[in-house]
Design a binder for these strands. Structure first.
Lengths: 364, 364
DNA sequence: ATGAAAGCGCTAACAG
DNA sequence: CTGTTAGCGCTTTCAT
């Protein structure tokens, strides 16, 4: 880890609080107070301490030693589904991060992005993170990094998934209800032959059609519940869910959405509505549909999920979820925890955004 | 900082390495080895140690204590111009972050976002960050947080600005040369009456026209050099730079770009080209121009700087800079430093992207 | 393969 | 307002 950080600067052998105290002929407490409790010594002495510190090149109390002593790291750890850098490519994750950063900022806490390679056996990164608590963003069930987080004796807040972890706060949305609402919207428009594009349902790659069994046993609870919502909504409208094609993609990109769309309509050209479980997928599908000469929404309806800015620009009908608020709430739940004993779950509202990509199925 | 992180989980009084050793009747060394040097004890003993640890709820060696002892935090600190959350709103910063995250990931290092409020007197956050080094992203000259970073006895890598800091590595681009090239492009098209929209030149808000004096004394070196490049390029084409209107905006948003555009053309309706020192500003200007009924590029040329995806979609002529590579390079410079003694400056290439918003000035 | 000794650098009572 | 006393929890030579 970070070996070789031995530049010129770090070489400069630094004075310590003790050596500074010795030089000044005062106790370590006094020096410590000069930094941490200015009111505990005379301004004159404090000046003298600080001046001498500067002269000796003493950089102030070592943060790690202080953390050890105070048992506070002053930082929140963030654990993400994907490789660290993924967080900066997904607009929903970015919004979440912004909200979380806001909460940390308000609290004066740092935000430590924990380096977990998705494939890494090495759970060590979690164990080595010097943090006062963890925010866990959308992890699959039975993830080993998440398990490692749970080992740590610090508070944990989960965003979205997994749910139902004892002693862990959670912030999320009602994915299932939101999808029921969307299904009802489409059913009301008259759609009965629908297809679905969804994100990965498991940690192993399976780009293709997902059976009902696979849907029900998905390791990603959010996807599981969104699909369940669609099933409920369309079943209520008389659709036999077992006939509804669901195409899964491991990668969460517009390109993946596009290829999933192509795969779907090739096998099921009869569908009049393509429901996507994310905006990214939906945007990709939209582009692929138009590239294939389909008229959306005249000829085909396409919907997304999330409510990212790009979806708004594209006029994509979708379900808006408050990603930024989720991040902020997660941070606040972690940081502002009073003396409350019971773990809390915060469900934020979603909103169906009917825009320009949904309409009645083509007559005939 | 992060007070009140006293949830149920953290309450669970945890065993320590010492107590575990006592329970097992072995030395602390052995327990430590069980975690850090598996080859130093018999597999059987190790098993026993780990099993007992689990039984006692020992979460493994405390990361902070370990960091103190090993003098390694396993994390890189990141200092940003703006409030922490700003990083997630600016596409260029996001790209930089992604690159930096990639480098950290490769190294197994965490990435600690240091919470600095822009106005905060409190430089403490920097002093309190337990990190092995800092990456500093685009700070104004004479920033106090940056000064605090320099106090710390750890290596530092600056991205973009400030330049010329002793003993500090830097990664950036040649902003001035890039702008000379852009100016030459516009001059070659025939533009002589140009206007400029730029980002903040100082930490105090000054939304309006910026005098040459203000341009030259800008505290943000990147802006200073971009303006200098434009001056050089246009001066060479026979333009009297002192007559070129430069409109400054404190906020870096499309809305700011739009209002700056309006302000510019109201006073200088004669300009045939509006050069913006960022894509965000350029995109805002483009929108405002079209809203005002101007034909771009038929009637007016507009350019940006950075090469963000949105600029590509909009067909904005711009200078592309490798933001992601800058982030990765900054991380690598910090993390992979061999035994090199001298500080390094890495200048990455830029590329003029002539697209659909630049053309010759209207005849007549 | 295991243990004893020696801190890493700091802060927090508490007593003066 | 200042100092004394005790560690925080761990790793690491160096012996054995």
């Amino acid at each position: 880890m970070a070996e070789a950080l031995e530049g010129r600067r770090s070489t400069r052998r630094t004075a310590t609080l003790a050596s500074l105290a010795a030089e000044l002929g005062v106790s370590r407490t006094t020096v410590s107070n000069a930094y941490n409790r200015p009111d505990q010594l005379s301004p004159a002495l404090r000046r003298r301490v600080l001046d001498t510190a500067r002269r000796l090149g003493y950089p102030g109390p070592d943060p790690v030693a202080r953390s050890l002593r105070t048992r506070k790291a002053g930082a929140v750890g963030l654990l993400l589904t994907e490789a660290l850098s993924y967080a900066f490519r997904d607009p929903v994750a970015i919004q979440f991060l912004e909200g979380l950063a806001l909460a940390c900022e308000d609290n004066g806490s740092g935000l430590l992005l924990v380096p977990v390679s998705p494939e890494a056996e090495d759970v060590g990164a979690v164990a080595r993170a010097g943090v006062d608590g963890f925010v866990v963003y959308s992890m699959p069930d039975d993830d080993e990094h998440f398990a490692a987080v749970l080992e740590r004796p610090v508070p944990v807040v989960v965003c979205d998934q997994p749910t139902d972890v004892p002693d862990v706060d959670r912030v999320g949305i009602d994915d299932q209800a939101a999808m029921v609402e969307l299904a009802e919207h489409l059913a009301a428009l008259g759609h009965r032959r629908v297809g679905v594009l969804c994100m990965r349902l498991s940690t192993d790659r399976n780009d293709g059609f997902a059976s009902v069994g696979r849907q029900d046993s998905a390791r990603y609870e959010v996807q599981r519940r969104r699909l369940a919502g669609l099933r409920d909504g369309f079943t209520a409208a008389g659709v036999d869910w077992s006939t509804v094609p669901v195409v899964e993609r491991f990668d969460h990109t517009e390109a993946a959405g596009g290829s999933a769309f192509d795969q779907l309509v090739e096998r099921n050209p009869e569908v009049t509505a393509v429901v996507c479980t994310s905006d990214i997928l939906g945007l990709g599908a939209l582009r692929a549909a138009r590239a294939a000469g389909r008229d959306v929404p005249g000829d085909l309806t396409i919907t997304g999920f999330d409510g990212v800015p790009a979806a708004e620009r594209a006029g994509l009908t979708t379900v808006r979820q408050p990603s930024l608020d989720k991040g902020r709430a997660a941070g606040e739940l972690l940081l502002d925890r009073g003396d409350r004993q019971r773990s809390r779950t915060l469900l934020l509202p979603t909103e169906l955004m009917v825009r320009a990509t949904s309409g009645p199925p083509p007559s005939r």
